[in-house]
Amino acid sequence: MRFDMPGLSREDVKVSVEDDVLVIKGEQKKDKEEDNSSWSRRVSAYDMRLRLPDASENEKVKAELKDGVLLVSVPKSKVERKVIDVQIH
């Protein structure tokens, strides 16, 4: 999965798995002086929750933040399907 998070650093982003839900939170606050007399504050905030599929290996979720893009990989466990041929009478 890919999430655009321009301007955020690793310290600004938290990725966790709560039960079977992937939680992504990020916040960046910047104070800036404008015109030597007034201050402005810019806040970028993210709070996203995604339900993970049943076949996910939640303990092996990995995340990487590079150039404002968060990449999250959620490996799937191998599920063997048992196929039984049913005779038609």
Rank of each mutant, 00 (worst) to 15 (best):
S77Q: 13
S56E: 04
G68Y: 00
H89Q: 13
V69Q: 06
K32G: 15
D54N: 10
M5T: 09
S37F: 07
I24Q: 01
N58R: 10
K32D: 15
K66P: 06
V79H: 02
D4L: 11
S56Q: 01
S38Q: 13
R49M: 04
G68A: 05
D19V: 07
K60P: 15
V13S: 04
W39V: 03
W39A: 04
V86F: 06
P6S: 03
R42P: 07
V72G: 04
K62H: 11
S44P: 04
I88N: 09
A55H: 11
D12T: 00
V21H: 13
Q28W: 14
R81I: 07
A63C: 06
S73A: 06
G68S: 01
L8W: 08
E27K: 05
K60N: 11
D19E: 08
D19I: 07
V17R: 08
K62E: 13
Y46F: 10
V83E: 07
S38E: 10
K30A: 14
D20N: 05
D12G: 03
V21W: 12
S38T: 14
D85S: 11
V79R: 01
E33S: 13
P53G: 02
G68C: 06
I84P: 12
A55N: 14
M1K: 09
S38N: 13
G7Y: 09
S77A: 13
L8P: 07
K76I: 01
V86W: 06
A63S: 08
E11I: 04
E59A: 15
D12C: 01
P75F: 04
N36D: 13
R41P: 05
V69C: 08
V21N: 11
D67T: 10
P6T: 05
I84R: 10
I84K: 10
V17L: 12
K29S: 06
S56M: 03
W39K: 02
V69H: 05
R51W: 06
